[in-house]
C-alpha cells in the first residue's frame, strides 16, 4: 500500500481516498460530486505540464485542476 496524491497516481490505476487537504469549501464541493474519504477512484489520464487530472468516480468522469488533484491523497496498491 502506498500513499500518493491524485497527480502521482498512475493512469489506469485505482485508489481509495485517504485524505483531502483543503478547507471545508473544497471538501463540500468534492463531496457533492461524489469524492469523499473512503471513496474508490480510478485515474483515467493526466494531461501533463501541470494540466488537469481526469478521474472516474462511479459512473461519472471528472476533470480536476492540477492544484486540486494534488490535494487529494489516495491509497493504492
Amino acid at each position: 500500500m502506498k500513499k500518493v496524491s491524485l497527480v502521482h497516481l498512475k493512469p489506469n490505476h485505482k485508489g481509495k481516498v485517504l485524505e483531502i487537504l483543503g478547507g471545508m469549501g473544497l471538501q463540500n464541493r468534492l463531496m457533492g460530486m461524489g469524492i469523499y474519504v473512503g471513496k474508490e477512484i480510478a485515474k483515467l489520464s493526466y494531461i501533463g505540464l501541470r494540466g488537469p487530472v481526469v478521474i472516474r468516480v462511479d459512473r461519472s468522469v471528472l476533470a480536476l485542476g492540477h492544484g486540486m488533484a494534488a490535494k487529494i491523497i489516495v491509497e493504492t496498491e
Partner: peptide, 9 residues
C-alpha cells in the same frame, strides 16, 4: 480558481 468539471458522455 481551479478547474473542476464533470465530463459528460
Amino acid at each position: 480558481p481551479e478547474f473542476l468539471l464533470e465530463i459528460p458522455p
